[in-house]
C-alpha cells in the first residue's frame, strides 16, 4: 500500500479530541500521514508540541481556496468541518496520495481501517444505518434524521488516488464551495447530503455495510458493543473500526443513553474517551475563542448574520472579505442597514 493521508478538521478549542483521534490513527496505522486542518486564522499562539502527534498542521486559509473568506463566513460552526475537509481530501489526492481518509475530530479509531487496504472501490462511504429501526424513537433518530441530514456519515470519507477517487474528491470540493442562493439550502449544499448523490454519480463507490465502521449515536440502536476474550472490541461480532463520540450533555449522548442497550462496553468506551480528551487537552487552547467567530474587531458573527450572508447573493458578490471592519465593509453595512443583527 502506498502513501495514505488521514486528515481531520477542527477548531483549536477541539484540539484535545483531535489529538485523541490522531493518536488512535497512529496506533492503528503507523505509516499514515496524519494531517490537521485547523479551521482558524493562521498565526495562533499554540506551541507546536501541543499538536503532537499530527505530522502536518495547516490552517484552512493556507489551502489556496478561492474566495475562502466569503465561503467560510457563510458556514455555521457546527457544520464547517466536513466542507473544510473536502478541500483537504481533494488537495491530498492531487498531491499524489494513494488514499485520502477523512475522519471527524470527535472520533477515534480502534481496530485498523482495513477497507482501504482491501480494495473494492475508489470511494468509501459509511452509512449511518445498515438496518431498519425497530422502534418509533429509533426511527425518529434514525431513518427520519437520515432523510433530513443524509444517509452517509459526515464523519468518515475515504477516496483513492485513482481517476474515480480523484473525480469524486474534485466534485465534492467544488460542490461544498458552490454558492447557491437558495433559501431551501441556505447557501452551499450541506456536505453530508451531497454524499447521498455520490453512488449515482460515481461508479467506484463502496458503501461499507460493515457494522464496525462509523459507530455513532445515530446507529447504536442496531449495534451491540462487546469486548471479546482476546481483548478485541466488536460490534455485532465485527471488529470496531471507528467510533464517533458525542460531546458531553449533547443530543448524541442522550441518543446513546436511549438506544445503547445499557451495554457496559459502550460506557467503557465513553469513559475512556473522556479520560483521553482530558489528558490531551491543553486548557488554555481549549478556551481560545473561534477566530472565524468574529469580525476583525472581535464583534461576534452571529448565526443570523451568517444566514443573511448565505441568502443574499448580492452581499456575497459585494464584499471580498466579510470579516473585515472599517468603512465600506460588510461590518460597516450591517451597522447601518441591519443594526438589529449586530451584537456588541
Amino acid at each position: 500500500m502506498g502513501r495514505t493521508v488521514c486528515l481531520t478538521s477542527f477548531e483549536l478549542a477541539d484540539l484535545g479530541p483531535a489529538r485523541v483521534l490522531a493518536e488512535t490513527v497512529k496506533a492503528a496505522h503507523p505509516d499514515w500521514t496524519m494531517q490537521a486542518m485547523v479551521i482558524e486564522r493562521p498565526g495562533w499562539a499554540v506551541p507546536a508540541e501541543a499538536f503532537a502527534p499530527f505530522d502536518v498542521v495547516t490552517s484552512v486559509l493556507e489551502l489556496d481556496i478561492p474566495r475562502v473568506r466569503p465561503w467560510l463566513f457563510g458556514i455555521d460552526r457546527a457544520a464547517i468541518r466536513l466542507p473544510a475537509a473536502a478541500c483537504g481530501l481533494h488537495r491530498a489526492l492531487e498531491s499524489g496520495a494513494d488514499w485520502a481518509v477523512y475522519l471527524d475530530a470527535n472520533s477515534a479509531v480502534f481496530h485498523p481501517l482495513a477497507a482501504t487496504a482491501q480494495g473494492g472501490g475508489s470511494v468509501l462511504l459509511a452509512p449511518q444505518m445498515i438496518a431498519p429501526s425497530e422502534t418509533e424513537p429509533a426511527f425518529r433518530d434514525g431513518e427520519l434524521a437520515a432523510m433530513r441530514l443524509g444517509i452517509f456519515s459526515p464523519g468518515f470519507i475515504a477516496a483513492r488516488g485513482d481517476a474515480e477517487g480523484r473525480g469524486f474528491a474534485a466534485w465534492f470540493d467544488g460542490m461544498v464551495r458552490r454558492p447557491i442562493a437558495d433559501a431551501r439550502l441556505a447557501g452551499a449544499p450541506p456536505a453530508p447530503l451531497l454524499c447521498n448523490l455520490a453512488p449515482a454519480l460515481f461508479s467506484g463507490i463502496n458503501i461499507l455495510r460493515d457494522p464496525g465502521y462509523n459507530v455513532a449515536p445515530v446507529n447504536i440502536c442496531r449495534r451491540r458493543l462487546r469486548v471479546a476474550p482476546d481483548g478485541s472490541i466488536t460490534v455485532n461480532g465485527a471488529l470496531l473500526r471507528h467510533f464517533q463520540f458525542p460531546g458531553p450533555a449533547t443530543t448524541g449522548e442522550m441518543m446513546l443513553d436511549r438506544h445503547g442497550h445499557g451495554d457496559i462496553a459502550l460506557y467503557e468506551l465513553l469513559a475512556w474517551y473522556r479520560r483521553q480528551t482530558a489528558r490531551l487537552t491543553v486548557p488554555e487552547v481549549a478556551a481560545l475563542p473561534w477566530s472565524f467567530g468574529s469580525f476583525d474587531d472581535a464583534t461576534p458573527v452571529t448565526p443570523p448574520i451568517r444566514r443573511l450572508w448565505r441568502e443574499r447573493a448580492d452581499l456575497y458578490r459585494a464584499f471580498e472579505d466579510p470579516f473585515a471592519t472599517g468603512p465600506g465593509t460588510l461590518h460597516d453595512w450591517l451597522g447601518r442597514e441591519r443594526p438589529d443583527l449586530m451584537v456588541a
Binding site: 496506533a27 480502534f110 481496530h111 469486548v227 471479546a228 476474550p229 482476546d230 481483548g231 478485541s232 472490541i233 470496531l240 457496559i264 462496553a265 467503557e268 468506551l269 469513559a271 475512556w272 479520560r275
Partner: peptide, 22 residues
Amino acid sequence: LRNDVAFCGAPAETSMGCRICV
C-alpha cells in the same frame, strides 16, 4: 476486572480491551 466492572481474562496488553481500561 476491566474498568473495575468486567472480567477481562488478561488479554494481550496491546489489545483494545486494555487500551480502554484504566
